[in-house]
C-alpha cells in the first residue's frame, strides 16, 4: 500500500480538522457516531421485527399499519427514519426497495446501505426491469408473482417483510431472526429454508 494518503483521505481529514478548529465538532463526536452505527445500528434490528411478525399475527398487523411507532417502541437508533413503511411479501406479490435519486434507506432497521444499493445500475434498472435484475441477483420469482418497487425518499423509507420459509415451524423467534438477511429485507433475496 502506498505511503501517500489518497486525495479523498486528505480531504476528509481537512474537513474534520477545520470543523474541530472552528469548534463545530470534536473527534469524540465522530467516534461516538461511528461506534453507535457499528454496534447498535444494523439489519439485526430489522430481523427482530420480521421474526416477531412471523410468530405473532397481531404484531404483524401493527407493523404493517404503523412501523414508525414500532421502531420507536423498540428504541432502534439510526436517525434516517422519519416514516417507515413495511411491505409484506406474499405468494402473489413481491416487494423490493430502491432509492432512485441517492441512497435513502431505513438505517434504524437495516443499518447503512450496501454498495450495490447506491449503484446507478441498481437504482435505474430495478425500476425498469425488476424481474430481470432480481434474477441476476439470484432471486428468480414465478411469472405469476407481481413485483412492486418502492422508491424511498427523504420522508418515507421502506422495508420488506419477506415470506417465512417452509420448514421453520419448530424455530423460535431468536432462531428465526438468525435466518433473516439484510438483502431479503430490501427485497432482493428470499429467506432460505435452513438445512
Amino acid at each position: 500500500m502506498s505511503d501517500q494518503p489518497s486525495p479523498q483521505s486528505l480531504r476528509t481529514e481537512a474537513i474534520e480538522t477545520l470543523l474541530i478548529e472552528k469548534k463545530l465538532l470534536t473527534s469524540a463526536d465522530v467516534d461516538s457516531v461511528l461506534t453507535t452505527f457499528s454496534e447498535q445500528v444494523g439489519p439485526m434490528n430489522g430481523a427482530k421485527l420480521v421474526a416477531r411478525a412471523w410468530v405473532d399475527e397481531g404484531f404483524k398487523a401493527r407493523l404493517l399499519e404503523d412501523a414508525t411507532t414500532i421502531i420507536a417502541e423498540y428504541g432502534f437508533e439510526g436517525g434516517q427514519v422519519d416514516k417507515l413503511i413495511v411491505k409484506a411479501c406474499s405468494e402473489s406479490v413481491h416487494h423490493v426497495v430502491v432509492c432512485t435519486l441517492c441512497s435513502c434507506y431505513p438505517w434504524a432497521v437495516l443499518g447503512l446501505p450496501p454498495r450495490w444499493y447506491k449503484d446507478p445500475g441498481y437504482r435505474s434498472r430495478i425500476v425498469r426491469e425488476p424481474r430481470k435484475v432480481l434474477t441476476e441477483m439470484g432471486l428468480t420469482l414465478p411469472e405469476t408473482t407481481d413485483i412492486k418497487v418502492w422508491d424511498s425518499s427523504a420522508e418515507i423509507r421502506y422495508m420488506v417483510l419477506p415470506l417465512r420459509p417452509a420448514g421453520t415451524e419448530a424455530l423460535d423467534e431468536t432462531a428465526l431472526a438468525e435466518l433473516i438477511t439484510r438483502d431479503a429485507m430490501i427485497g432482493v433475496a428470499a429467506i432460505e429454508t435452513p438445512s
Binding site: P43, W116, T181, D183
Partner: peptide
C-alpha cells in the same frame, strides 16, 4: 451492479 445471493446472518 454487484451481484450476490448470500444468506448469512444479517450482521
Amino acid at each position: 451492479l454487484r451481484l450476490h445471493g448470500d444468506t448469512a446472518p444479517p450482521m
